[in-house]
Design a protein around this nucleic acid. Structure first.
Length: 660
DNA sequence: TTAGGGTTAG
């Protein structure tokens, strides 16, 4: 069919050949603009700078045009191949990468080029095609150290840690020099070597020793990777040792060490290290990743004042344009009890919101007990076309669980398939928690028994937690028979079962469990609470004898307890597992860290101020009852964040409705 | 040519 006579003048002009009077520069420009407009056919012969044109198309994401041009290109340059491979990897276009690969294999100039072999391996690794990456390596005629390092990186990225370590060993055997890049990839591979019969910590230590012997132990990138590896393995003291001896620390190594503390439940130390970093050297300036890490640490200890200082810093440094920073800021406010400020930041982010922003808001509502609002945000998210992720469903199911929304949770769990999200063990753990807390224990057990994947400790842990609430001995024993096998060093499981036995008056079994704890030298995680008063963070440990004010604090709590007893309150000594007199048990209850923190807040803050506390464990029933009473008796608002959720105490009532 | 640190949940 011929073009209509009324075709637009500019469109028809594009089909004319460049005027012979035009110079070479103008002719090339005209040809390029036609190609970019995708209206002109591929010109033949190709312009003199066709390689440059392909590179420009790649940079602007017009891959179809770039790929078409490549086919007729008589002499692609190294840079052209590189641009195409990088663009294909970024766009997730595996077909394009394969087509460039085929073209390269037929090119006598570059088919043996080690530079392009590394680029091919990189591209296939990013596209998730490990077999193809491996094949490029095996067939590469020249295996430079770059090619080896690219393979190590690809294997570590694909979680093929054992194979990466085997290749690293090959390098030594074949006399290929190993450099700092090889060590950095090798260390990451240790963490990915989950199926290895050798523990990851032993692998990291071995490579660490090797790097030290070869003089790479203090290399900035190697040492920073070491800090991160030890952080992920939970060996904080080793990370500290590496950090301490680093001669030339930069912002990344400081951030890695701050992140190490934050990951390993030492947010207070993360904040102290950040303050040390700021005071240490004018050249070390925190970047957005440092800010995100430290905001996470502030959220961990409810350090609202420090978080507000960071908020001001974010504004000063212009980080307000970065969504990742705003997401972390939003999470910090919500975890520090300021739900509305978090919502305000979410609104402010506007159309730049990513899936993390939505997840943060959903989980924020969830942890504050606003289940319906969390579901509403979930629905809004899907309506505007954002695909829910694995974490979205964990967040929204968790929100249903905290609010006791059983039917809504079931509906959402069943809808996961509609969003192409396959339920994982984490989602089953959420559902077991939701059903179990609400008292549907039989249904929770049926769900576990029908799982298509092996139940993880989290799933059994959810069942055990529910059994503790409803004092169900039989199912608790079922859960523990799995948990003691799966995680024999987790003292918390033994303590929970002992608690259930204690409430069921099965004292002999309590003793058996206490003996087991002693036999395995397991220690219960001590209860710990934090409170920020007058811009300073204070920490309390249960039965704390170190704080100088502790006697005064306990006396104050004792007065409240006496008042409560007049109203019929009976201390819930069931949570104390020691075989001691009732009076002694009551003393232990008075020494619980959250009660000490509440009393400290009352004494050291003004009447109108909200008391904000964070606890590292679940709030015990007795502390819950006492805090409710204190909120009414003293007319103070008290907000406690425990390991699961928020409790807003006001006028003798808690926002959780005694359901947590 | 290549490499190191981060947010959302449980």
């Amino acid at each position: 069919m011929s073009a209509p006579a009324t075709a637009l003048p500019h469109a028809s002009l594009l089909h004319l050949s460049p005027h012979p009077a035009l110079g070479p520069w103008a002719r090339t420009r005209l040809t390029r603009s036609r190609c970019l407009a995708s209206l002109a056919p591929v010109p033949a012969p190709l312009p003199a700078d066709a390689n440059h044109l392909v590179q420009t198309l790649c940079a602007s994401g017009r891959l179809a045009r770039a790929a078409a041009l490549l086919q007729g290109l008589p002499a692609p340059t190294q840079r052209t191949y590189e641009s195409l491979l990088l663009a294909a990897a970024r766009a997730g276009d595996a077909a394009l990468a394969a087509s460039v690969h085929r073209r390269l294999e037929a090119d006598p100039v570059f088919r043996s080029d080690p530079f392009l072999s590394t680029r091919l391996i990189d591209a296939y690794a990013l596209l998730g095609s490990l077999p193809a990456a491996r094949q490029v390596f095996d067939e590469a005629p020249v295996k430079s150290i770059f090619v080896w390092n690219a393979l190590l990186k690809a294997l570590a990225l694909a979680d093929h840690g054992e194979e990466a370590l085997a290749r690293l060993a090959d390098m030594g055997r074949l006399g290929v020099p190993v450099d700092s890049y090889s060590y950095a990839h090798g260390l990451k591979a240790c963490i990915a070597a989950s199926a290895s019969h050798v523990p990851a910590s032993a692998l990291v230590r071995e490579i660490h020793a090797h790097a030290v012997c070869r003089g790479y132990g203090l290399h900035t990138h190697v040492a920073t990777t070491l800090i991160d590896c030890y952080a992920k393995l939970g060996i904080v003291s080793y990370a500290e040792r590496v950090f301490a001896i680093m001669p030339e620390r930069n912002v990344v190594s400081w951030t890695a060490m701050i992140g190490c503390y934050a990951k390993n439940e030492r947010p207070g130390d993360a904040i102290l290290l950040f303050q040390e970093m700021m005071a240490s050297d004018a050249d070390i300036v925190p970047n957005s990743i440092t800010i995100v890490s430290i905001l996470h640490a502030c959220a961990g200890v409810n350090a609202l004042w420090q978080g507000k200082v960071l908020h001001a810093y974010i504004l000063r440094r212009g980080f307000y344009s970065l969504v990742s920073v705003l997401n972390a800021l939003m999470a910090m406010y919500m975890k520090c009890g300021c739900l509305e400020v978090g919502r305000h930041i979410f609104n402010w982010i506007g159309h730049r919101r990513d899936v993390v922003s939505w997840n943060t808001l959903i989980s924020g509502y969830g942890m504050h007990g606003f289940g319906h609002e969390a579901i509403q945000v979930f629905e809004e998210m899907t309506q505007v076309g954002v695909s829910p992720s694995i974490i979205t469903f964990i967040s929204v199911l968790g929100a249903c669980s905290h609010a006791g929304l059983v039917d809504e949770g079931k509906r959402l769990f069943e809808s996961m398939v509609d969003y192409n999200v396959k339920p994982r063990a984490e989602h089953y753990a959420c559902m077991v928690d939701l059903l179990g807390r609400a008292g549907h224990l039989d249904e929770a057990v049926e769900l576990i028994q029908g799982m298509h994947i092996r139940p993880t400790p989290q799933v059994w842990g959810s069942l055990l937690g529910a059994c503790r609430i409803h004092c169900h001995v039989e199912y608790a024993e079922m859960a523990c028979s799995q948990l003691f096998d799966l995680e024999p060093r987790n003292a918390g499981n033994y303590v929970l079962l002992a608690d259930i036995y204690s409430r069921a008056k099965l004292h002999n079994q309590v003793e058996v469990l206490k003996d087991l704890l002693k036999e395995h030298a397991l220690e219960k995680l001590p209860g710990c609470s934090w409170i920020e008063v007058k811009k300073k963070l204070h920490m309390f440990v249960s039965v704390d004898n170190k704080n100088s004010q502790v006697e005064e604090l306990q006396a104050l709590i004792g007065e409240f307890v006496t008042e409560m007893k007049n109203d019929g309150y009976v201390p819930d000594t069931g949570v104390v597992l020691y075989d001691i007199e009732e009076e002694e048990k009551e003393k232990i209850l008075i020494g619980h860290s959250e009660k000490l923190a509440v009393a400290f807040g009352l004494i050291n803050s003004g009447r109108g101020e909200v008391i904000r506390i964070t606890k590292n464990l679940r709030l015990c029933e007795d502390c819950h009852s006492v805090t409710k009473f204190i909120s009414k008796f003293t007319e103070r608002e008290i907000i406690v964040r425990d390991v699961n959720r928020f409790h807003h105490f006001r006028d003798g009532i808690c926002s959780c409705g005694d359901y947590w």
